[in-house]
Design a protein around this nucleic acid. Structure first.
Length: 655
DNA sequence: GGCATTGGCGCC
DNA sequence: AAAGGGCGCCAATGCC
């Protein structure tokens, strides 16, 4: 590695806090492989950043940093006019991140995992692991740079200068180790710079943060607590809730899982469904089968506890100041993840869809949320994957014939033994029975592509929100009915799976290929188009990987395009001034002035479809925009007479 | 008592 | 031959 290849960079900043996740820059350091290095503050730091980006764009060294998305966001916050240069540098793959690289390499090796809260990918940990160096000053010196802002460099304590410069030095030393690792694996990290760009986009999303409506949160909390109080009386009487003295002396109620296990055992004995650890299972589906009011109360109580603890209490903190959901750019299958922290952040990718929950989060005053999600994204990417791997895909052909093809209606028609024309007519007429069949056919389309078997399909169908196969009547040859148990579903599930294989004949060839990858138990998968590698995959990992990873790549590209349009004035996009607000796998949501939101959402659709189309050349890409003030899963696109999008209003919470 | 693991469950 | 995957988080329990 020479000075022409890379320059390691790092920034020290003021402390971040709620509402300021990208604080002002205090100093910027740089280091070259040859040993040259330096530190700049104030106007010098600004000149360094601009010059480094300009050089990178004109064939000079690529900028490398650890979590450089953070540095980039701080540069942008401190010097807003760096925006076009910065986005252009990311776009042209002139910025890379050693944290992203490390994850990509670990995933390729099959050794990627994250120990919760352990910071396995922090600079200090990686430097210790790969360079055998213990970095001094993390958590102490690092927190003191705010006090040095404005102080001339010659007055800085030596250790503060050395600490900052050293971070830039270890970055390119780490990069050298990563390049060597990549060489041994014969892996060129083809999407490293792109993942770094998407990481920047996601960090900007975190910076924006989300606000909650205090009245809605309070009302929801009161409602939950009232419902809990009613159930508590009954569950205490049944011995399923016990009081325990907390150490501060306040007695609190706790569920007695042991007692619940006894009820399951009483009902099923040796035949009880078991957890992997061998205990009688107490999940929702098992308890529903008990047909015991105590178990019903338990299920309802558990749901309320989950809603209160995981969602509503988090929203409470977002009432008086923004909360900042965090994102992780890369997990094993190529997707992102989201997580909470001690600063009031939370995992925004698992907020319940149940009406009333998401609605607590809303746009700031004068703003609307412009949202756009991909239509049946993973069905389309499976169609793409089978087109490429098998050479022919009925599913892809159907999408090409009709970009708005509905695979669930088609599959339900086959299951029911009726024609697609009749199915479509019944769907259009609002036929309730057909609607139920369509809903019940979804697990059949979602599960089997990932290699799901009959038992798995039953479990999936029974836990699928708002769906119960026991409600499917008239299943010839089955004993399906209101009192059916999980075993009675086997016949239906087997029929669903067989029908699925007939519906999409490309499935045989797909699984043959996936099986050949993993013949020896585990194998290596190369992602279509992006070339990202994942090692140590099992059959089901690989079966899922092709379509979920492809969808993830497309969605991240789409988010990048949307984010750049929001920030970079040189694009003069209708999205300019809007800010990405959330990213939920197949959906992007931006926040911005209500009066421009319609055009913004339409532009999101255009950009997202264009990006997705690059990843599914055999299948048309379709995305749907919509507007709302409060987040909701119930929302639908609403247009005025002129066809212009207007914000969707929830009848339940309007007024 | 505090930390680690398990079971369950929310999302896609 | 057969085979859902990916997360993060909470409460209860297990363990030292």
């Amino acid at each position: 590695m020479t000075d022409d290849d890379f320059v390691g960079m790092d920034s020290e900043t003021h402390l971040f806090r709620a509402g300021r996740r990208a604080p002002p820059v205090v100093c910027v350091t740089w280091a070259r492989p040859s040993g040259r290095k330096g530190i700049e503050v104030g106007a010098g730091a600004r000149r360094l950043v601009f010059a480094s980006l300009e050089r990178a764009l004109s064939g000079g060294p690529v900028l490398a940093g650890h979590s450089i998305a953070y540095d980039s966001a701080c540069w942008l916050a401190t010097w807003p006019d760096v925006v076009t240069l910065l986005f252009e540098a990311y776009e042209r793959e002139r910025i890379v991140c050693t944290k992203v690289n490390e994850k990509l390499l670990d995933i390729a090796e099959g050794t990627h995992f994250e120990e919760p809260g352990r910071g396995r990918y922090k600079l200090g940990e990686l430097v210790k692991k790969h360079l055998g160096i213990e970095l001094e000053g993390k958590g102490t010196l690092q927190l003191q740079y705010g006090e040095l802002d404005g102080v001339p460099l010659e007055c800085w304590p030596r250790e503060h200068v050395d600490y900052a410069v050293n971070d830039a030095v270890v970055v390119f030393r780490l990069l050298a180790v990563q390049e060597a690792r990549a060489r041994t694996m014969q892996y060129s990290l083809p999407d490293a710079a792109f993942q770094a760009a998407a990481d920047f986009a996601l960090f900007l999303t975190t910076c924006r943060g989300v606000r909650a409506n205090g009245e809605r949160v309070e009302a929801l909390l009161a409602d939950i607590r009232a419902k809990k109080a009613v159930l508590e009386k009954k569950l205490v009487a049944a011995g399923l809730l016990r009081t325990q003295n907390h150490r501060d002396g306040i007695p609190t109620l706790h569920k007695s899982v042991g007692k619940m296990r006894e009820l399951v055992w009483d009902a099923h004995g040796e035949d009880s469904p078991r957890t992997p650890g061998g205990q009688p299972q107490t999940d929702r589906v098992t308890l529903e089968d008990l047909d015991d009011p105590r178990a019903e109360d338990w299920n309802e109580y558990s749901g309320l506890e989950k809603t209160e603890g995981s969602f509503v209490l988090k929203f409470l903190e977002a009432v008086s100041r923004p909360a900042h959901p965090n994102y992780n750019i890369l997990v094993n299958n190529g997707r992102t993840s989201s997580y909470g922290d001690e600063h009031g952040g939370f995992n925004i990718q698992h907020i319940a869809r149940m009406p009333g929950i998401r609605e607590c989060l809303e746009a700031r005053s004068g703003c609307a949320l412009a949202a756009c999600d991909f239509d049946t994204q993973e069905m389309r990417t499976w169609g793409e994957a089978t087109s490429v791997i098998v050479g022919r895909s009925v599913l892809a052909e159907r999408y090409r014939q009709d970009p708005h093809f509905d695979p669930h209606t088609a599959f339900a028609a086959t299951l029911l033994g009726i024609s697609e024309e009749e199915a479509l007519a019944r769907k259009k007429a609002g036929d309730a029975e057909f609607k139920l069949w369509r809903q019940n056919s979804k697990p059949g389309n979602f599960g089997p592509p990932g290699g799901m078997g009959v038992d798995g399909l039953i479990r999936y169908a029974r836990s699928y929100a708002g769906l119960k196969w026991r409600d499917v009547e008239n299943c010839a040859g089955c004993r399906m009915g209101r009192s059916s148990t999980s075993r009675d579903h086997t016949c239906f599930a087997a029929r669903v799976r067989d029908t699925w294989f007939r519906q999409w004949p490309e499935a045989r060839g797909y699984f043959a290929h996936v099986g050949s990858l993993t013949d020896s138990g585990s194998g290596t998968q190369v992602q279509l188009y992006s070339g990202r590698v994942r090692g140590g995959v099992t059959f089901t990992d690989a079966a899922n990987g092709y379509f979920s990873g492809l969808a993830a790549d497309a969605s991240k590209r789409a988010l990048w395009r949307v984010t750049r349009a929001c920030f970079d004035p040189s694009l003069a996009s209708p999205l300019l001034g809007f800010r990405p607000w959330a990213f939920i796998h197949d959906e992007a949501i931006c926040e911005g002035p209500e009066e421009r939101a319609a055009e913004a959402a339409e532009e999101m659709r255009r950009l997202m479809e264009a990006e997705m189309q690059k990843f599914t050349p055999h299948v048309p890409a379709v995305a749907s925009p919509q507007l709302y003030r409060a987040w909701s899963k119930k929302a639908e696109p609403v247009r005025d007479r002129g066809g212009r999008l207007i914000p969707w209003e929830d009848r339940a919470t309007a007024g």
